[in-house]
């Protein structure tokens, strides 16, 4: 598995499947799903694990559905505990 530096969370129900993020991603990490959301749009998903957290997808998204995370190169002391992780997850994913 490639060394992961970034990640995104997509609010799939708000996505309108415009595909602008897909062409904006320099890593080819995202695509439209074969499935559709409640609105009937093919929503955006990750298809590869090589996101760098560059924010491009989030910047071009007209519906502001993407949240981006990036682990900086510098060594950081591990802060997140399991419970922390879960709290954050439930906060971000609705």
């Amino acid at each position: 598995m490639a060394k992961v530096k970034g990640d995104i969370i997509v609010d799939i129900e708000k996505c309108k499947g415009c595909e602008l993020c897909v062409v904006a991603c320099p890593q080819g990490a995202i695509a439209l799903s074969d499935n559709i959301n409640k609105k009937g749009y093919h929503y955006m998903i990750k298809i590869k694990d090589n996101c760098t957290g560059c924010e491009n997808c989030a910047l071009v998204c007209p519906d502001a559905v993407i949240t981006v995370y990036r682990k900086s190169g510098k060594k950081k002391e591990k802060i997140a505990t399991i419970s922390n992780v879960q709290n954050n997850m439930t906060m971000e994913v609705n």
Partner: peptide, 9 residues
Amino acid sequence: ICVAEYLVY
């Protein structure tokens, strides 16, 4: 990675 500490956008 998806933790508040690494949130960039």
